[in-house]
Amino acid sequence: MNPSIIGQMAVSGALMGLVYALIAYGFQLTYATSKSINFGQGELVMVSAFFSLTLTNLGLPYWAMVPGGLLFGALLGLVVERTGVRLALEQKSEGWILLSIILGLFFFSAAENIWGRDDRPFPTPISADPIHVFGVDVTRLELSVAVGVFAIMGLIELFKRRTLLGKAFEAVSADRDAAELMGISATRTVMLSYALSGTVAALAGILVSPITTVGPTMASALILKAFSVAVVAGLDSGFGVVLIGMALGVLESLASFYLGSGWREAPSLTLLILALAVRPTGVFGKAVIRKV
């Protein structure tokens, strides 16, 4: 087996893994504030990508389209929070799991009927010509994924650590009641986390669409792997999702080479179930102390 081919696959796998990591990071954002995640996150990725495509088709230049798409993602995140999550959280039930699945299904159906069922190309000014780095071919397009992922995660982490609002975010995640006592509104913090999560999903859609094309089912495979990454890495560590995301990306690109492309999903899913058996809170997750 040619080592350069392995290297080639590892690199493109890892870059794809960053997209999984980014979506998984979206789960972490909401989990931190409310212990809930949006099971319809994949549909947010897809609908935001379609919306961005529409913006482009309306003649908006790429750099003006991106903020528009991100804003739309944030709005969708807020819709999910309001309709699917808030009531269940108030009732301290886990109804949000079912409700966020349902909302995802609705978005899916809406997208099918608004934009059609076909996959469509997503235009981008970033070149898809390969450049040669260390014996491996990478396109600028693929690199743009890495840049985008690290940029937004870096920005959000910076926000969490350097601004008071970000610290409030961390405070709610550490102790919701105590945060309320400091004058921090937990409800608004949860809203903010869903908006951020939606933004992250939209960015994932915009970054990955030029590579995979846009279609109603574009996110169904993505989201499964993002779930795996989130569970394997745990829902606490941003660093963890990047690492696990890249590892999974490499693994699946090797699996599809050796076992056939249909088995792409197998390693991540198997890894997920195995990881659960060994460490239920995730590799980078925090242990939970039970109280009576």
């Binding site: 099971f39 779930f227 056939g260 179930i273 195995l274």
Partner: peptide, 30 residues
């Protein structure tokens, strides 16, 4: 599936079962 998955609660359990479902579809297809 339950042996590992039921050590989890709520969302993680749902995720684990979802992954199992996807894995089984893959297996039936492949």
């Amino acid at each position: 599936l339950a042996l590992p998955a039921l050590r989890l609660e709520g969302p993680q359990f749902a995720l684990a079962t979802l992954s199992f479902a996807a894995l089984s579809t893959t297996a039936l297809n492949e």
